[in-house]
């Protein structure tokens, strides 16, 4: 569902991403771990066609993200670290707006059902976003993915800054999405959450994917150790 072949991004002499080969199938949650500047967000930006690759290719649902940017975006939902919705509009209105500009047309009860499925309490459906916590805004993002029937979910550090309860709730939502055959790519610093919800984990450093493995192949302790070793190894 998500595939990259030798995906590379350079800014002059600086290599932000080097020959990334990645494949995430339906129902998989791939967690990209790495320090700041490792290339996690660059990967997501390339998949979203926010930036053009220097070389290599990226595909969403077998569609080239550069050649058919609009089409690939109809398959995916993106939730950045801070999902900024329109503060003067309510959750239902924001959902209606972002779905509507993309060509989707839903009635109010349907929108409310999507929000409810994403775990947003009923009382919050018609409240303005300006009064929402980060966790509540992320739930609106998930509702957007549910409503779009997204095949791919791209998440850029979605749990950073969330309290443990909200972070746990968000993890449960992702597991639910996975069961609905959504392919999820999540960039994160949170090793514990990656181990807990991910089906696969990748460790990035200086634009390169150093390790990639299935989550059930490694314990949390070993994962932490490998992560730290990878970080320190590159510094020596």
């Amino acid at each position: 569902m998500i595939k990259t072949t030798n995906l590379t991004k350079k800014y002059g002499d600086f290599i932000a991403l080097k020959n990334l080969n990645l494949e995430i199938k339906q129902g998989e949650i791939f967690c990209l771990l790495g320090a700041n500047g490792a290339g996690k967000s660059t990967t997501i930006n390339l998949l979203l066609n926010f930036i053009a690759p220097t070389s290599g290719q990226a595909f969403i649902n077998d569609t080239d993200v550069v050649k058919n940017a609009k089409k690939t975006k109809s398959f995916l939902t993106y939730i950045p670290e801070n999902l900024m919705l329109y503060p003067t509009l309510s959750a239902v209105e924001n959902l209606d707006y972002f779905l509507g500009i993309g060509g989707g047309k839903f009635y109010k009860p349907e929108l409310e059902a999507f929000l409810e499925e994403a775990g947003l309490q009923k009382e919050a459906h018609h409240k303005r976003i300006q009064f929402f916590s980060k966790g509540m805004r992320q739930k609106v993002g998930i509702a957007l993915a549910i409503a779009k029937d997204a095949k791919v979910l791209l998440l850029d550090e979605p749990t950073s800054g969330l309290d443990p309860k909200s972070s746990n709730e968000f993890g449960e939502l992702l597991k639910k999405m996975r069961k609905n055959n959504v392919a999820i790519l999540m960039a994160t610093h949170d090793i514990f959450r990656a181990k807990e919800i991910g089906t696969h984990i990748g460790i990035m450093k200086q634009g390169e994917l150093k390790h990639s493995f299935a989550t059930d192949q490694i314990s949390l302790q070993d994962l932490e150790k490998l992560y730290l070793e990878t970080m320190n190894l590159n510094e020596v």
Binding site: K71, L76, F98
Partner: peptide
């Protein structure tokens, strides 16, 4: 500056 441009740009729109 607010950050909503990323969400907008991830929609299938120009």
């Amino acid at each position: 500056e607010y950050g909503s441009i990323k969400l907008l740009a991830s929609q299938p729109i120009s």
